[in-house]
């Protein structure tokens, strides 16, 4: 496709000091930031900033499959919708889903399915919607990272989180985490996603030319990068809940409650799984009492007052 505004790439992508266009070392990641629970209506959601990539992912389900004939009686299905916003790239992208988006949806699906227990959800579907707000090379990897976080946020049982990162070859040198220009002007590109508990690859694509030795270096870079991303994913999740804990500890001190037995009053106590029966039974009784009392109190107060005054 011819671009209306042609993109120009610099001749040298790596300078004399071995630094890249944005000043990174060869095996250095772009700045990475993530957050969970960002969309109110989704069952689980996540937001990822990887370099200049800005990506939202939302998880819905497990829920009914539409059209119904796609449902499988033995296990659930996972469906991913990867979409790029029309303003996310250099030149406007048509909002209609294209071949590339369908491909990336498919590979994200394949990258995440091995972490799910799909056999728990017969006849239902888990749907992930990935929306790229800004693209800066390596969106498929960043989208996989985001989608994995969103699945975890939805509370679905997962074998592991997945971290995605790409390696590439630029000016004859292997680099980690290609940026937009390195991706387009480079000689090779290896997007990968890794299931972090056993470090198995769930996504590995290859585009370009490399010698076997270079490939090995690239793979080692990818592993290193994925571990860094995984550490940041984990930290982001924990930070969210730890922050609330710190806030509440301060509140506890404020109200003068310091002698807390942590075992006493905690989520997941089996005692508190059921609503006590006497309370449930009381519900009916309370209902009647309250209606009677509220009728009495609500209706007349003003009238009674005025009547009293009149009588005086």
């Amino acid at each position: 496709m011819t671009l209306l505004i042609p993109e120009t790439y610099p001749k040298k992508l790596i300078d004399k000091n071995g630094k890249r266009l944005d000043g990174r070392a060869l095996d250095e990641l772009r700045p990475f930031k993530c957050k969970i629970g960002v969309l109110a209506n989704a069952h689980g959601s996540a937001y990822v900033e990887h370099g200049k990539n800005k990506i939202y992912a939302g998880v819905y389900g497990p829920r009914e499959v539409h059209p119904r004939h796609l449902a499988r009686p033995d296990k659930g299905i996972l469906r991913v919708y990867y979409r790029m916003s029309s303003f996310s790239v250099h030149e406007r992208k048509s909002p209609a889903p294209n071949r590339r988006e369908r491909e990336i949806s498919k590979i994200i699906e394949d990258a995440l399915a091995p972490t799910l227990f799909l056999e728990l959800y017969p006849n239902s579907a888990i749907e992930i919607f990935v929306q790229v707000i800004a693209a800066d090379g390596g969106t498929r990897c960043a989208s996989t990272t985001a989608a994995s976080l969103a699945l975890a946020d939805a509370g679905l049982p997962l074998k592991s989180l997945v971290a995605g990162v790409a390696a590439g070859k630029v000016d004859g040198k292997i680099i980690l985490d290609c940026g937009d220009i390195e991706d387009k002007a480079g000689q090779a590109d290896i997007p990968a996603a890794i299931r972090m508990t056993d470090e198995e690859y769930t996504l590995l694509q290859f585009d370009g030319e490399m010698t076997p030795e270079e490939l090995e270096t690239a793979i080692s870079y990818v592993k290193k990068g994925a571990r860094e991303i995984f550490a940041k994913q984990t930290a982001a999740i924990k930070e969210k809940f730890e922050r609330i804990r710190q806030e509440t500890d301060a509140e506890n001190k404020k109200i003068g409650k310091t002698d807390i037995n942590p075992d006493d009053d905690m989520l997941g106590d089996e005692d508190s799984m059921d609503m006590p029966l006497e309370l449930e039974k009381g519900l009916e009784r309370v209902k009647e009492d309250k209606t009677k009392s509220s009728d009495k109190s609500s209706k007349p107060e003003k009238e009674v007052n005025t009547l009293k005054e009149e009588s005086k």
């Binding site: 804990r245 509440t248 006493d264 989520l267």
Partner: peptide, 8 residues
């Protein structure tokens, strides 16, 4: 997920 919730 925090402690001392009832009092708070």
């Amino acid at each position: 997920h925090t402690t001392g919730l009832t009092d708070r």
